[in-house]
Amino acid sequence: MDTSATAICNLLYRYAEAIDEGRLKDAAALFLHARIEAGAAGPLDADGLLALWRKILVIHPCGTPRTRHLVTNPILDIDEATGTAQVRSCFTVMQATDDFPLQIIASGRYHDRFARIGGQWCFVERDYRQLDFIGDLSQHLRMPLKQTQRL
């Protein structure tokens, strides 16, 4: 039996898995009920987020971004009575390609809010603006990070 904590953490991990497998549409679908803060692009919905990913992410011939997103240290504040939760977690993105040795390319924090909708936990808010460390993103983004922040 899933607890609320397990269900919420699984959403964090399903997001990372879908992105790493190049299933951008599936990853965006996790944010169907969400408002996404992505920097200068302003608040986005799931469709806007998918369009942004398709515009900026490099998808390699294998159909994936050749990344591994690790989501760690989730701190969950769950209110069972109201069916809401706030979660802070850390992420580390590693990447390797045929010409790019395995390395950490980014690290930061996610600030998420969840709500129980139709009996299921769902993302209702994500803040992508907590990027703490930036490595070589040349094989991950189609444009320099400064340009993506203005999108």
Results as ranks from 00 to 15, higher is better:
residue 104 I to D: 01
residue 45 D to I: 11
residue 19 I to K: 02
residue 16 A to N: 13
residue 109 R to V: 05
residue 107 S to N: 08
residue 55 K to P: 00
residue 136 D to V: 03
residue 31 F to S: 03
residue 19 I to Q: 04
residue 139 Q to H: 15
residue 145 L to A: 08
residue 70 L to C: 12
residue 94 M to D: 10
residue 151 L to A: 08
residue 136 D to F: 04
residue 140 H to T: 14
residue 59 I to N: 00
residue 145 L to W: 14
residue 66 R to Q: 13
residue 18 A to P: 02
residue 148 T to D: 03
residue 13 Y to E: 09
residue 150 R to D: 01
residue 26 D to I: 09
residue 1 M to C: 07
residue 111 H to K: 13
residue 131 L to S: 05
residue 1 M to H: 07
residue 60 H to A: 04
residue 122 C to I: 00
residue 16 A to M: 13
residue 35 R to S: 14
residue 144 P to G: 06
residue 136 D to S: 03
residue 1 M to L: 12
residue 37 E to Y: 08
residue 112 D to Y: 11
residue 118 G to V: 00
residue 67 T to Y: 03
residue 21 E to Y: 10
residue 47 D to T: 06
residue 68 R to I: 15
residue 133 F to N: 12
residue 67 T to F: 01
residue 147 Q to I: 13
residue 43 P to A: 14
residue 43 P to V: 14
residue 7 A to I: 05
residue 58 V to N: 03
residue 95 Q to Y: 11
residue 147 Q to T: 15
residue 68 R to H: 10
residue 89 S to W: 01
residue 2 D to E: 09
residue 13 Y to I: 11
residue 63 G to V: 15
residue 110 Y to H: 11
residue 122 C to L: 07
residue 92 T to K: 04
residue 88 R to L: 11
residue 148 T to Y: 13
residue 88 R to M: 10
residue 134 I to G: 09
residue 33 H to W: 08
residue 100 F to R: 09
residue 71 V to C: 09
residue 81 A to W: 02
residue 141 L to G: 04
residue 25 K to W: 06
residue 116 R to F: 09
residue 138 S to Y: 12
residue 66 R to H: 10
residue 96 A to N: 06
residue 88 R to D: 05
residue 47 D to Y: 07
residue 59 I to P: 00
residue 133 F to V: 00
residue 117 I to D: 08
residue 54 R to I: 01
residue 118 G to H: 04
residue 39 G to H: 14
residue 102 L to A: 07
residue 123 F to V: 02
residue 20 D to C: 10
residue 44 L to R: 09
residue 27 A to M: 03
residue 143 M to G: 00
residue 38 A to H: 12
residue 28 A to P: 02
residue 29 A to R: 11
residue 102 L to E: 07
residue 1 M to D: 07
residue 107 S to P: 02
residue 61 P to S: 04
residue 17 E to Y: 15
residue 59 I to M: 02
residue 80 E to Y: 05
residue 5 A to R: 15
residue 51 A to T: 12
residue 141 L to T: 03
residue 15 Y to I: 06
residue 5 A to T: 14
residue 67 T to E: 00
residue 37 E to I: 14
residue 106 A to M: 13
residue 88 R to A: 11
residue 89 S to D: 07
residue 143 M to F: 07
residue 139 Q to K: 15
residue 60 H to S: 03
residue 56 I to Y: 05
residue 79 D to L: 03
residue 127 D to I: 08
residue 66 R to K: 15
residue 140 H to Q: 04
residue 3 T to V: 09
residue 46 A to S: 15
residue 147 Q to K: 15
residue 113 R to G: 06
residue 116 R to N: 08
residue 132 D to L: 09
residue 50 L to K: 02
residue 44 L to H: 06
residue 131 L to Q: 07
residue 122 C to Q: 15
residue 52 L to K: 13
residue 11 L to Y: 11
residue 99 D to K: 09
residue 96 A to G: 01
residue 151 L to S: 08
residue 146 K to E: 13
residue 65 P to M: 10
residue 135 G to L: 06
residue 83 G to I: 00
residue 92 T to A: 14
residue 104 I to A: 14
residue 46 A to K: 05
residue 100 F to Y: 13
residue 46 A to P: 14
residue 46 A to D: 14
residue 86 Q to E: 15
residue 139 Q to Y: 12
residue 112 D to S: 11
residue 114 F to M: 10
residue 23 R to C: 07
residue 28 A to I: 12
residue 79 D to V: 00
residue 114 F to V: 06
residue 80 E to M: 11
residue 55 K to F: 02
residue 150 R to F: 04
